[in-house]
Simulated scan of single mutants.
Amino acid sequence: MNDTTQAPERRAVRGRDGAAVVAAAPRARASARRPRSGQWAAWAFLAPVTAYLVLFYAYPLYRNLDLSLRNYTVRSFVQGGAPFTGLKNYGTVLHDPTFGPALLHTVVFTVVSLAFQFTIGMALAVFFTQHFRLSATLRALFLVPWLLPLIVSASTWSWMLNSDSGVVNSVLHYAGIAPVNWLTSPQWSLVSVIIANVWIGIPFNLVVLYSGLQAIPASIYEAAALDGANGWQRFWKVTFPLLRPVSAITLLLGLIYTLKVLDIIWIMTKGGPADSSTTFATWSYRLGFGNLLPSFGPGSAVGNLLIVMALVFGLLYIRVQRRQQTA
């Protein structure tokens, strides 16, 4: 039987008396260097990601927290030296008359937008699983609102909902309905921005939910049909439970996105009239950048409250997912 074990390399070394002494080559040092070189390679790959997270996530969060704990002015914002005020800015925000309406508008805007986006997106995803003629073309057309820049979409809706020359009021006029002040009425301004946000968010829900539906085996539907299940029963007993993980991540991403929506509301109504469509995102922007004398501290405090809201919902999602995995 041949011995496959390789003997260690040896080399001749001259002793003090000139005699040749055979010694083993230092392979142990070479083998010890390999793990260290692998660690350096791993750190080299992690360095760009770490730098990106620090520069674009950790440092902005730190600066936002620092702004909310100090009394910054325009001068101190540039030159530094703002005095530390602790939680005073948060107290100012909580006692501001705008806090209550802004919180209510944020919740209503987020919940209603998510409900309609998810429901319509689910209905369209189930509809397009029929694979009829021109289904691919129609799916591509539904992606247009998602592909357009937000400033274009918001400007388009502002024009369509204009009280005097908008397309929507023109249609209502031909239908014998009185025109509606969509953007200038406190009763309709929040409804207007919700409609625009729902229109923009439907394609995202459609794409994600349609991808989830494609992963469900057709044999399950065939077995349900053999058991006598109708279309609604197949959806409620088969499609919806199997689509629950995809639905959860869709709702979570939609929630985080909707909480921080600024472009649409600011372009269409700027949070008005009379703060009737002000949310935490628009309020924070207005405090920090929308006035000649910006209030950096309170604006950052409102932004941090928005971050906390998103973090709470994210932790709730993780907890629900763990319960579903252990169940």
Rank of each mutant, 00 (worst) to 15 (best):
G81E: 02
A24M: 05
N71K: 15
S155G: 08
R63I: 14
L55H: 05
S135V: 02
A47V: 05
V93I: 09
L103S: 10
V126S: 12
F99L: 03
V144C: 09
A102M: 06
L141T: 02
V74F: 13
A41M: 09
L55P: 00
A42E: 01
L104F: 07
A123M: 10
A41G: 11
R14N: 02
Y57W: 11
F128P: 01
N89T: 01
R11P: 00
L46N: 06
G80M: 04
G81M: 07
T50E: 06
L138N: 03
P8D: 14
A12M: 06
Y57T: 07
R63H: 11
E9S: 05
A140M: 12
Q117W: 08
I151P: 00
G18A: 04
A136K: 06
Y57A: 15
R36F: 15
D96Q: 01
G100L: 12
S37D: 03
S68G: 09
L46E: 05
T92A: 14
E9L: 11
P145S: 13
G80Q: 04
A58I: 08
L104S: 13
E9G: 10
L148W: 11
F56S: 02
A12Y: 08
Y52L: 15
V22Y: 09
H95P: 01
F109C: 00
V74K: 10
H95E: 05
P35C: 12
F99K: 00
L103Y: 04
V111L: 09
L67H: 07
A19H: 10
F132W: 08
F116W: 05
F77R: 15
L94Q: 07
L87I: 11
T129K: 12
L150D: 09
W43A: 12
A42K: 07
E9C: 01
T129F: 05
S135F: 03
F56D: 04
R27E: 14
P26M: 08
T50D: 02
A25C: 00
A115N: 00
V108K: 14
I151Q: 14
V144M: 09
P48R: 06
Y52F: 15
R34Y: 11
P149W: 06
F109E: 00
R34W: 13
G121E: 14
P97C: 07
K88E: 15
R14I: 02
V93Y: 08
T106G: 12
Q117K: 15
V21H: 12
S155A: 12
A154E: 00
Q117I: 08
I151D: 10
L69P: 04
G38R: 11
A41L: 14
M122N: 02
D17A: 04
V74L: 15
A102V: 03
S37Q: 11
R133V: 14
G81Q: 04
L134Q: 10
N64I: 13
A82P: 00
H105Q: 14
F84T: 04
A82Q: 02
T98C: 03
A32V: 00
R36Q: 09
R10L: 00
I151L: 11
L141K: 07
F77S: 03
H131C: 02
W43Q: 04
T119G: 15
R14L: 10
F118G: 02
F142A: 06
